[in-house]
Design a protein around this nucleic acid. Structure first.
Length: 155
DNA sequence: GCCAACGTTGGC
DNA sequence: GCCAACGTTGGC
């Protein structure tokens, strides 16, 4: 059975509009440099899982659409490129430290589901992303939360 | 711009 | 292995 996730992105770095413009509306999700998020990506995120696309550090902040995992974890080769901002000298092709997945855009919501809207919803108010100091950029989402977000997007 | 939260680093 | 210093994230 498919699982659900929330992926954070700063829109000035990569927005849902960038994903919309990408070839096949697909992108690799590289640059995850946190072990807990890495473990989710590598061990738990599976092809077909649903992704809530979240804009952080933005105005307004919130969930802007959904995507689907189309390729499961493979080594984040950006870590091996010394000139890249995601370079990590401790990672190597032999023993990769970091992983990434590919996602494809599913839906761009007609309006952003803001943090206020999430907080006001009895189900979504429990979401990890609302927790103070929740810095995790790959977060698990329950099916109830996933469905509640869809409902908010349609209302 | 501020700062709380929290992960990482490095000296011991 | 402890912990202080430091860096980053990200909401406000």
């Amino acid at each position: 059975m498919a699982a659900y996730w929330l992926f954070k992105s700063e829109p000035q770095v990569f927005s849902i509009h960038d994903l919309h413009k990408a070839p096949g509306k697909k992108t690799s999700w590289e640059g995850i440099r946190n072990y807990q998020a890495r473990n989710y990506l590598r061990d738990t995120v599976r092809k077909g899982d649903g992704v809530l696309f979240y804009h952080s550090n933005a105005d307004p902040m919130g969930i802007v659409g959904t995507a689907q995992v189309v390729k499961e974890a493979y080594p984040d080769h950006f870590a091996w490129d010394p000139s890249h901002r995601y370079h990590d000298p401790d990672s190597s092709p032999d023993k990769p430290t970091w992983f990434m997945v590919d996602i494809r855009l599913q839906t761009t919501f007609p309006r952003i589901i803001t943090r206020d809207m999430l907080a006001a919803d009895p189900v979504c108010s429990g979401m990890l992303v609302l927790k103070r100091g929740s810095r995790l950029s790959i977060q698990p989402v329950t099916e109830a939360e996933w469905l509640a977000v869809q409902r908010l997007a349609e209302s």
